[in-house]
Design a protein around this nucleic acid. Structure first.
Lengths: 237, 237
DNA sequence: CCTGCCGCGTGACCCACATCACAAGCACGC
DNA sequence: GCGTGCTTGTGATGTGGGTCACGCGGCAGG
């Protein structure tokens, strides 16, 4: 067995060490065994498209390792990034559970390991295992919440600097408490623009402004927040 | 027993005729009986606030009859309407399932009948009744999907006319197929503005423009779409 | 009746940001 | 090396629509 993208595949969910408590697959033994039996493990290179909006749902993808970009695209080709999925999340669950077409597009942003489960298998699985179903409901709830957060960000803030400030705070929120939080992220200005719904040039300009005013610096793929207070004032908190 | 707001309360879920297949409470007998036992039925006048964003979740509200406005408000007092909930929907499920504060505000738009279920009771209920849990997951999925739709509308379209056109099409989509679809809705220009994330004046102007161009007319609370084709072209479809 | 109040209609102003256009920096593979 | 492609930086320009300001009509209550 090779390791095509620089890491070993974990084939067996029961002994998997990638999993943490927040993972969807953090399940009691019985459910986990059932999940292990019906899943198809695979690894993907960066830039692989898992599913496209509008497709009929084939099933779910459990993200074990790596990041996946979730986005929608308008008819004119403008793209909006909904979120960057982290390990432990389940992709395509809405469509699979409700039987409607995938409403978003999922594309790996780096080499990833994913477990695919066919739609019917997943439905049966949820039917049989109440604890898994509850877990699924919780994950869906969280998705809704982040969606609502993004709606707030898009609908309730007027200025691009405000939205960018909110995004930077969001990113640093999970990082350890420290004077000047640093976050690693591999996103281009273009992608940041697609998250906050603005243009690439505006992101560049606002970041330059933040840098000049000693608020935050994005150098390479490292973000350093110099003055959290000002950011918080910008978002109106 | 009186009927305070012009309709009779249906106290017993088992013989309720308000329910249709799409209702959350369209459940097999066992689950329905359990639901009936733990719910508290009540009616509310128009304008009643069921819960406010930021509150700790008390439980869920099953909407039997009437419409409920779901919204968020920014620190500066700007309001964004997320959706108008229809009978059959469950309000506050995200917060209740995940245990996080209500992230939105729910306010009745007309006299309503609602069934309240306490948080712990609802959790136990979902644990015990797998079919109800699955149904809950489906409802959460649908919520996510409408949220994503709104994100698309807010993030991917530049012009206010485009967003308004999309909204009008959405409203008429469910109405019977006919040459000039008419829809009843009781929303002020202000509220429409809050749905599509623009200002009241802009809504007035765009509606005036639509009227002049014979595209759609909003008179009183009746919306008549005169030229669906133009609307569809406006949204870029 | 007059007086508020609220939803609607409209004009004037102006600024944030999209858009276009182009240059410079940086990483590749050959 | 040198080209090719992508990302970043920055200036000039145009405009959509937010905001303010005010007038009008309808409706309820004193």
């Amino acid at each position: 067995m090779g390791s095509p993208y620089g890491f070993e595949l974990v084939e067996n969910c029961l002994i998997c060490k990638l999993r943490s408590d927040s993972f969807f697959c953090s399940l009691p033994k019985g459910a986990l065994e059932a999940f292990d039996k019906m899943k198809y493990t695979a690894s993907y290179p960066a830039g692989a498209v898992l599913f496209v909006e509008g497709q009929a749902p084939r099933g779910i993808y459990m993200l074990c390792k790596g990041r996946v970009k979730l986005s929608t695209t308008s008819a004119e080709g403008k793209t909006l990034i909904l979120k960057i999925a982290q390990p432990g999340e389940v992709l395509g669950m809405h469509a699979t559970v409700s039987g409607t077409p995938y409403e978003i597009t999922a594309e790996t942003g780096q080499p990833c390991q994913l477990n695919f489960v066919k739609r019917d298998d997943f439905s049966n699985f949820l039917q049989k295992h109440g604890d898994a179903c509850l877990k699924a409901a919780q994950h869906l709830s969280k998705d809704c919440q982040t969606a609502y957060q993004q709606i707030r960000s898009l609908g309730l803030s007027h200025s691009a600097p405000e939205r960018l400030a909110r995004l930077l705070l969001e990113w640093t929120a999970s990082s350890p408490e420290q004077a000047e939080p640093k976050v690693k992220l591999a996103l281009t200005h273009e992608e940041i623009a697609q998250i906050i719904g603005t243009s690439r040039e505006t992101v560049t300009r606002v970041l330059a402004d933040f840098r000049k005013r000693q608020i935050a610096v994005l150098k390479g793929s490292t973000l350093t927040v110099r003055n959290k207070g000002v950011l918080e004032k910008l978002v109106g908190a």
